[in-house]
């Protein structure tokens, strides 16, 4: 398990020794795009990432999974402000002629869940967030969103923006052929037209470490001791 360290500036994560990878939900989004293309038998998949040079690795991974071309919107560091990112993505996407613009439900590092729906608003496109299932037919989509203890089904026309939850499609591993092929696919680097940044991180902290590890016994015989501890020590019973 990765234990994060806070960098010397006190407001970012120490990146030494960290391995960068595609965010979980972006893996699902890429997979959804690939399956739609396979099902339709046509289409062109562009992957876009805003960030410094390291994001090229993520873009190459998407290309090796089967995406057709990639665009890096270059910035020195990714702002924490979702609207600033959304403005840059919207500027890149507005003339793209895309039928579908897919996002992950949430990025793992910022965990903001704002970039997708903000980009949709800026582009004036219909938007569905956190789709856990998706069907597309005749230029319309039907999707499901999980709620707390419930779910809802929504319908909307394409072109549209959809943010992808887990449950639709597990990402494939790039094949060797895919990895070789990805090297020849176009990866364009452009400066990002970032919006103004109003949301910043001023400090990062690690949550208090858990002090677990106490085994109180074996088998059903340990139950009375557990109940005693839950009552007297943890006071949850």
């Amino acid at each position: 398990e990765t234990r994060f360290k806070i960098a010397a500036d006190g407001r970012s994560v120490d990146q030494a020794g960290l391995k960068f990878d595609m965010s979980d939900f972006d893996g699902y989004a890429v997979e959804v795009a690939l399956r739609l293309k396979e099902k339709e038998g046509q289409g062109d998949i562009t992957v876009i990432s805003l960030g410094p040079a390291v994001v090229q690795e993520t873009l190459r991974k998407a290309l090796s999974m089967g995406a057709d071309r990639a665009v890096q919107l270059e910035v020195e560091s990714v702002p924490f402000d979702g609207l600033a990112i959304a403005r840059a993505l919207a500027a890149e996407l507005k003339d793209g002629g895309y039928d579908l613009i897919l996002f992950g439900r949430m990025s793992i590092d910022s965990s903001n869940q704002t970039v997708g729906p903000m980009t949709a608003e800026l582009l004036g496109l219909p938007c569905m967030t956190a789709a856990s299932s998706l069907e597309i037919a005749g230029g319309r989509a039907t999707a499901r969103r999980e709620l707390e203890g419930a779910a809802e089904i929504l319908e909307f026309p394409l072109p549209a923006v959809i943010t992808i939850d887990e449950g639709i499609a597990r990402p494939r591993l790039p094949s060797l052929k895919g990895i070789m092929g990805a090297k020849k696919k176009p990866l364009e680097v452009k400066p990002a037209q970032l919006g103004d940044v109003h949301l910043t991180v001023t400090q990062m902290e690690l949550p208090p470490e858990r002090t677990g590890g106490r085994i109180i016994g074996e088998g059903p015989d340990a139950v009375p001791e557990l109940v005693r501890l839950l009552r007297t020590e943890a006071k949850v019973l």
């Binding site: 806070i6 994560v13 924490f80 793992i108 965990s111 400090q203 990062m204 902290e205 949550p207």
Partner: peptide, 10 residues
């Protein structure tokens, strides 16, 4: 952030 492993003050 980072699935609860880090707390950001924003």
């Amino acid at each position: 952030v980072n699935t609860g492993k880090v707390i950001a003050k924003v």
